[in-house]
Design a protein around this nucleic acid. Structure first.
Lengths: 156, 156
DNA sequence: TATCAATGTGTGTATATACTTATATTAAAG
DNA sequence: CTTTAATATAAGTATATACACACATTGATA
């Protein structure tokens, strides 16, 4: 039916409804806020929440190439390439040419393992705080829904 | 009990469990993937998903200052300041000094309204696709959970 | 084997994000 | 009314993110 005659009030109402219903907006907003909590928690280690996640992914796929790592993270390979460089500069991972000399294989360093060990209880702290404030059940459902959502993009 | 004797297998298992349970990681992963879908949908308008959200927020708070807008978005004011500049360069919003000359008041332009009108059905398309693939009920629960999560940071 | 297509990464460019610091303006104290 | 504290924003710096493109390497084909 078009919007040709939308006045200020109509636009305001449209904005309100869209903000309430938009999955992307609410996902991003929650993400912004939550990541600050993680960043705060890991701050004593000089680590960001995103870097903790990535280091965890590296150790779970030790020696994997960029492209192989990017897949399960749902991340562009070029993005991952840059993020890995950050961990490398911190001395947490090493990057080595594979047998296939196009590939760069990523491995965690001893220092990386050490940081991960110190980070784990900090992560646990955030996790428990969330479970406490939102309830275990709600967290469980949220995780399921998020995984279903990610699953939709499996092929891409 | 410490991790002093963690071997490769233990680390791999730790990584797997953490990846499964971490709210931040799964939130971010879903966010990354989903935002690409929005970006694709809005591409004909030269708009990103984030920019659509922001433009919607502007029109819902027309004439608000940066700080007033940042609050409901859960965004840093400095971040919002930069994001607004992008919309301004596209001619979608105007920035004007307020009576309090420290404030910059943001308003949508006619061009901005026009783009929003064209964007709305594209947004609706994504929304319906999600509802179709995940189910209305699941989307509803997900939105509720995300809002509860954001609510935790209300004071900050 | 020489050529060409496919693959794996990195770089250029743009945006999103936050924290810290600088600047300007208002409000409060004296 | 002057000094000082509080507030609003922007700019500096760093990271996260993606897309398009360039480059190198491998694999396939003629």
């Amino acid at each position: 039916m078009g919007f040709s005659n939308l006045d200020q009030e109509d636009l305001k109402e449209l904005s309100r409804r869209t903000g309430q219903a938009c999955v992307g907006f609410n996902l991003r907003k929650a993400s912004r806020l939550l990541m600050r909590l993680y960043d705060e928690a890991f701050e004593p280690l000089g680590l960001k929440g995103t870097q903790f996640s990535l280091l965890m992914a590296v150790v779970g796929n030790n020696g994997a190439a960029i492209g192989e790592l990017a897949q399960p993270l749902g991340m562009e390979r070029s993005t991952l390439s840059r993020n890995i460089t950050v961990l490398q500069k911190k001395g947490l991972v090493t990057v080595e040419e594979g047998e296939d000399r196009r590939q760069q294989r990523i491995s965690i360093t001893d220092s990386g393992v050490s940081v991960l060990q110190k980070a784990q209880p900090l992560w646990q702290g955030v996790q428990e705080r969330l479970a406490c404030e939102l309830g275990e059940e709600r967290i469980k459902n949220l995780l399921e829904d998020l995984k279903s959502l990610s699953q939709l993009f499996k092929g891409k």
